[in-house]
């Protein structure tokens, strides 16, 4: 029923080949514990399918619930503007319980990004519009919580444990091939 209204483009943060059989899109929030739980599962799923799968991450910070979610999303975008989106994305999830300025500065240092530039980007809300655009596109597509996954554009309503995701993706692969 719910389908992805904003198609995946070159503007997206994506891992895996553009012509992969299946594209998995996640709308996620760095402070959401469920997204934190999904993070290693998605890695396993990516490993399982290899080049047959492309993974795209879009921001869906639930700021009323999670005070650091918006800033974390903007920090990831800040790193992304310098070609280090996934490095930052992974570290944010891996250090989810420490989200906040001190962590952002530590990660900047680790990734050799400028702390001054990051502070400036946060203060000037340089990446707010991008994060908001992800959020709004997600709402339009029927994102109903975090994480919400779309498999080749169809919202995945089942659980996001490894077996459920793998079998849902496999199903789509089979259908795509027979079409």
């Amino acid at each position: 029923m719910a389908t992805l209204k904003v198609l995946v483009t070159g503007e997206d943060h994506a891992q895996g080949p553009e012509d992969a059989d299946v594209t998995l899109v996640e709308y996620g929030d760095y402070e959401c514990p469920h997204c934190g739980r999904a993070y290693p599962i998605v890695k396993q799923v990516q490993k399982h399918f290899g080049k047959r799968l492309r993974f795209v991450f879009r921001n869906f910070p639930l700021s009323e619930m999670h005070p650091h979610a918006e800033a974390a999303a903007e920090v990831a975008e800040f790193a992304g503007a310098q070609g280090k989106f996934w490095e930052m994305h992974d570290r944010l999830f891996e250090n989810q319980e420490r989200l906040g300025e001190a962590l952002f500065l530590d990660l900047d240092k680790e990734l050799k990004l400028s702390a001054t530039a990051m502070r400036q980007a946060l203060a000037q809300k340089t990446f707010e519009a991008r994060v908001r655009a992800d959020f709004t596109g997600g709402v339009r597509s029927g994102v109903n919580g975090t994480p919400t996954f779309f498999i080749n554009g169809q919202r995945h309503n089942g659980s996001f444990d490894f077996d459920a995701l793998v079998s849902a993706i496999q199903q789509v692969m089979i259908t795509a091939k027979s079409a």
Partner: peptide, 10 residues
């Protein structure tokens, strides 16, 4: 059991 989201409302 299914949260309908907000796409239909919008």
């Amino acid at each position: 059991a299914v949260n309908p989201g907000a796409d239909g409302i919008l």
